[in-house]
Amino acid sequence: MRRFAHFVRPWLPSHRCRSSFSGSTKMIRRFILKFAAAFLALFAAGGAACADDYPSRPITLVAPFPPGGALDLIARALAQKLQEQWGQTVVVDNRSGAAGIIGTTQVARSAPDGYTILLGATTTHGINPSLYKSLQYDAVADFEPVSLVATIPHLLVVNPGLPVHTFGDFVKLAKEKTLPFGSAGIGSPHHLAGEMLKSQLHLNLQHIPYKGSAPAMTAVMSGETAFMSVEVTAASQYIKAGKMRPIAVAAAKRLPTIDVPTFAEVGLPGFEVTAWYAIFAPKGTPRPIVDKLSQALAKAVHAKDVQTRFASLDATPVGSTPDELRRYVDSEIKRWAQAVKAANVSMD
């Protein structure tokens, strides 16, 4: 409301004349305040009316990574449940490339009407803001947080031929000799997790980047590298086949499917590396629409069939509020900024 008063101030009587027109000035100010209040009420009513009609046409859910991965599978599970709830088509659009930047930028530049939304992730909204100095989008300023929908923790896995059965064994060996570790690429969560271990425990580690997590895991299994930090979803089948040995899980709690201790249990409290997935809308999307989306997503992730689907990915359903997601993203940006700095990497 102060902006309205500031706008009309040049047209108010000068200081020398204010005593003569004090009554008129008060009337003008009252008029401005009433006008501003009416305008804000009308704006809020308009947003609520939009939410009542939403969605009235198909929605595009942009997945900024290729088909077949965990993010894509989570996007398709959510799209199906939203479609069932609303009776409107929800199309998953895979716009992959450049560490999720292409698809994320597209959504940032879309109309803020709730009909183009994004399934963002650790990379797009946690790591990229620090890794790219000239990022084409602002992870905070260009988006409305909607809901954190799922998380998948990382595991520390080693080649089964190594004399490493516990985290203590791993630390001891990494202090005696240089251990090569693989990742899905420079600046990926797999890379930064290894760099965090290196800096926090003063280990002798050498990073070898690969073009994706699949070839990086192949390198661990073949003995080309000694270990890596990788999502449970990707590693689980190889662990069951005895091709990788799990050492610790980078989560607050133990996994129900793979019996290994958390990093906190082995003496490294606070060491958590999580692949997380969250829905974002373009900045300026009306709050009533954001809230309606968030509530629908919370219902979706707690549906029995979605929970079964998530369990097959070793993913934990969340379904947060917009404000909870906002705080989570802020904390993740700060945490990964420290990791990027410790690794001394930049993609610019």
Rank of each mutant, 00 (worst) to 15 (best):
Q237A: 15
I152N: 14
L255E: 10
I258E: 00
T285V: 07
R309L: 03
V107G: 12
A150Q: 06
V90H: 11
Q88W: 02
L205F: 06
A300P: 04
F280S: 00
G100D: 15
L12F: 04
T262C: 04
D138Y: 01
M196Q: 08
A41T: 07
C17T: 13
K240R: 09
P112R: 00
K341C: 00
M196V: 08
I289V: 14
T105Q: 15
A48N: 02
E176T: 06
D52H: 10
A139P: 05
G100E: 10
A36Q: 07
A141Q: 13
V171M: 07
Q237R: 14
S294H: 15
K172A: 14
V301S: 06
R16K: 08
T122E: 09
F43L: 07
A235I: 07
S213I: 14
S331I: 03
V90F: 11
F4Y: 12
V158Y: 06
N159T: 06
S19N: 05
S236W: 02
K177E: 07
F35I: 01
M221S: 11
L61T: 04
M347T: 01
V91K: 14
V158Q: 04
I208S: 06
S19V: 13
L131Y: 15
E332Q: 15
D53T: 00
A51T: 04
A141L: 11
I289S: 02
V290M: 10
G185H: 11
D53F: 02
P112E: 00
S56I: 00
I247L: 15
A252N: 05
G242W: 08
D93K: 12
T166G: 08
A343F: 00
P10S: 02
E144F: 02
K26T: 05
L78C: 13
L173T: 04
G194F: 09
K253R: 10
P66S: 05
S134C: 01
R2V: 04
G47E: 12
L297Q: 03
S222G: 06
R287P: 01
V164P: 04
T316S: 07
K253A: 07
K175P: 00
K34P: 01
S24M: 07
V146F: 10
S22I: 03
E231F: 12
R2T: 09
I239K: 02
F31P: 01
M217V: 13
Q295D: 05
S19G: 12
V318E: 10
V62Q: 08
H165N: 13
T178D: 10
